[in-house]
Design a protein around this nucleic acid. Structure first.
Lengths: 187, 187
DNA sequence: CCTGAAATATGATTTGGATCATATGATGCC
DNA sequence: GGCATCATATGATCCAAATCATATTTCAGG
């Protein structure tokens, strides 16, 4: 659960579970609040002029979605459950009134500023054309935390290209590969 | 100037001008606040283990930078002026105390939530591999506002690839090209 | 312990986008 | 009006990353 929402009164939190394929909310529906993913995955989707579905955002455990709904009357996209899970709905009125508490406001702003920063960095990194430089920038940014597969997906690279780039960086002595599957920057 | 900062007392705003190549602040320096770009361009850069410089963010007129510095003691990257311009420094203490004003807090949160949403969408769009689909998704997202060149850069595509994709979409009847240089979705 | 699935790893082939080149239409300026 | 500059536009070539293929290692579960 993102930190600031710990300051929201528990009565404003409503737990819910959904199966894969269910929708959490639909575009055009009246907003009731934002959501936090406990487990499972949710896709925010927008529908194109010819009915194509565009994924706007993939929310994973610990992430929140539809934060902007707190400030608008209607949801402007669909939230579809990609993987069954448990979620918490946070009442929008409770959030709006929580801004009267400076501690909540600062915690919110702090978390938002940090997220904006991380996203800006991610955008710059995926803008790097050469796989090797992109992977290196990703390592410097600390994006390789769990598996190489997840790392590759964060970089918007195929995992094959990522493995090859890692190998090349190791051969060039730019990163270390002490054991199979573990890589870190040369200190 | 991003909306919420209009609620900051003018005494906390300090205008400054910088030439290209100047630094606005350096990594490790004590934070004094965030900045808004009036004109010119600023790059946030982080230095890698071997001295390589990674651009974290490119701030253009109207954009703010170092928002997170309000919540930390030191700047954690360098801000280098890429193009001479005028900037406004907003005192961090003033921002922190402004969170006591619920109107400021809500305006800030609203703007932050919107920005997070836009960035998430941008990340999803640049993750689309096929140029044609990426361009189409960009059009659906309304990213083609001014020139095709700017559009291409937002999509992380070469402008040539963007023009070709636009042509193909026009030929396939997915978008309209009423006059040279103007494109819009088929209604 | 055995089995299946997923992560790790690398080779071969294909392809789509970057790059280079070139041309024309628009725009601003002196 | 003439000139420079930039956006628009498209063709040709090249290359790097996607894709397909395959093998090994690890690990969870029965």
């Amino acid at each position: 659960m993102p930190e600031p929402y710990n300051l929201i009164p528990p009565s404003a939190l409503r737990p819910l579970t959904r199966a894969a394929g269910d929708t959490v909310f639909r575009q055009g529906a009246w907003t009731c609040g934002l959501y936090v993913v406990k487990c499972g995955r949710v896709h925010l989707e927008r529908v194109g002029p010819d009915g194509e579905r565009f994924i706007i955002y993939r929310a994973e455990p610990g992430m929140s979605l539809a934060e902007a709904s707190v400030f608008s009357d209607r949801y402007h996209c669909d939230a579809v459950v990609a993987e069954a899970g448990a979620f918490v709905q946070i009442d929008k009125a409770a959030v709006l009134s929580a801004f009267a508490d400076p501690d909540f406001a600062r915690a919110y702003a702090r978390q938002a500023a940090q997220q904006i920063q991380a996203q800006r960095q991610a955008l710059e990194i995926v803008g790097i054309r050469r796989a090797e430089e992109r992977v290196y920038a990703g390592m410097v940014a600390g994006l390789l935390e769990s598996s190489v597969v997840d790392f590759a997906s964060a970089l918007h690279l195929s995992h094959e290209a990522t493995y090859r780039a890692l190998r090349k960086l190791v051969n060039d002595g730019r990163i270390a590969n002490p054991t199979r599957g573990t890589y870190h920057l040369r200190p």
